[in-house]
């Protein structure tokens, strides 16, 4: 059989190919500066960047073991209409953080690196009755502790307990915390600017929607400790009592 003819009974063919992708090479991890410069670049050629897949390259970071806030970065890139597909040149920890947000780990030539697959683990903080609520959302009924990270892919994240400082919540959709929010909450990480954060008591270290964020210092003291919702209007985060 000739190579161009599809094999009989096969609905597809799987083969290697080399595609060149634009690379975003980071020199710094300051998401404010990155966001500002990136939107400037995109304004110059919006068509070129629209729906463009993009690879994040970490090999040129000044400090090799810098912590990259992928949730913010992915939110930023998506918010600007591009599609982040993978990272390259990162270390073990950076790769782990990137995988958490479903970025592929790529070698320097763009080929995918296969990594020993960790045992499938139940979601952190899961409880009997916790878990997927069927719509890509995630329901958690136990406190989310320092060092824990939860990601509700494709949906909302609902936590019916407290979120400790040092804990991180990510959701493509909204985040609801029916306890004190003392950690970080990043909603709309896939670029959804209409996502919102709701919490019973705002003591957050950081809140972000689609890559726009505020750290606790810049959250107005006026609403500190209040029951609030947080949403985006014209790229500005609004914190408002509910």
């Amino acid at each position: 059989m000739s190579a161009i003819q599809p094999a009989e009974n096969e609905p597809f063919e799987l083969k290697a190919s080399a595609i060149t992708l634009p690379v975003l090479r980071l020199f710094d991890t300051d998401m404010d500066r990155i966001g500002e410069r990136l939107s400037h670049k995109i304004d110059q050629a919006p068509d070129f960047f629209h729906n463009a897949p993009i690879v994040i390259d970490l090999s040129a970071l000044k400090s090799g073991d810098a912590t990259v806030d992928f949730a913010l970065l992915v939110g930023l890139i998506r918010g600007m209409g591009m599609i982040p597909v993978g990272v390259q040149g990162g270390n073990e920890l950076q790769n782990e953080a990137a995988e958490m947000l479903e970025l592929a780990i790529l070698g320097n030539g763009g080929e995918r690196k296969t990594r020993p697959r960790p045992k499938p683990k139940p979601r952190v903080g899961a409880n009997a009755g916790d878990g997927d609520n069927g719509s890509g959302g995630l329901l958690v009924t136990r406190p989310v502790r320092s060092g824990q990270r939860l990601y509700a892919r494709g949906g909302d994240l609902v936590v019916t307990a407290a979120v400790s400082s040092g804990a991180e919540l990510f959701a493509d959709g909204n985040i609801h915390v029916y306890g004190a929010l003392r950690g970080r909450a990043l909603a709309g990480v896939n670029g959804n600017a209409s996502a919102r954060i709701f919490c019973r008591k705002l003591n957050a270290e950081l809140v972000s929607i689609a890559g726009r964020y505020k750290v606790s210092d810049s959250i107005s003291r006026e609403h500190w400790g209040d029951t609030v919702q947080i949403y985006l209007v014209d790229n500005r985060l609004i914190v408002e009592p509910v």
Partner: peptide, 10 residues
């Protein structure tokens, strides 16, 4: 302790 609790849970 909060950190330990997180590790215990996973």
């Amino acid at each position: 302790s909060d950190r330990m609790l997180g590790i215990l849970a996973s």
